[in-house]
Amino acid sequence: MTAHGDCRQCEERLQPYLDRTLTADERAIVQLHLSECGRCARCYRLEEVLWKHVRNCCEEEVNGELASNGLQQRLAALRSEPG
């Protein structure tokens, strides 16, 4: 396969690789290519950075709301009467 074809295959496998749904053989092929190709290695690294960043951003945005919206109290008030 050409180097370009290797990169395309590697791009196709980025998500399943990070999700750990590739077979051991497929995984080994990706790893070999990543050790030889700077662009693919960079994209794989950035993908991990991106999704961590997405999670952090969503979390931070909601932290402030949870601190002030009184949701816990309102939900607790929905509980059935004791006894």
Binding site: E11, E12, L14, Q15, R39, C40, R42, C43, R45, L46, E47, V49, L50
Partner: peptide, 17 residues
């Protein structure tokens, strides 16, 4: 594809983590 964003960031000089 999955690399598109990173190639674009690279072009914009923002390709580092």
């Amino acid at each position: 594809g999955d690399y598109f964003l990173y190639d674009r960031l690279d072009e914009a000089g923002a390709g580092e983590e």
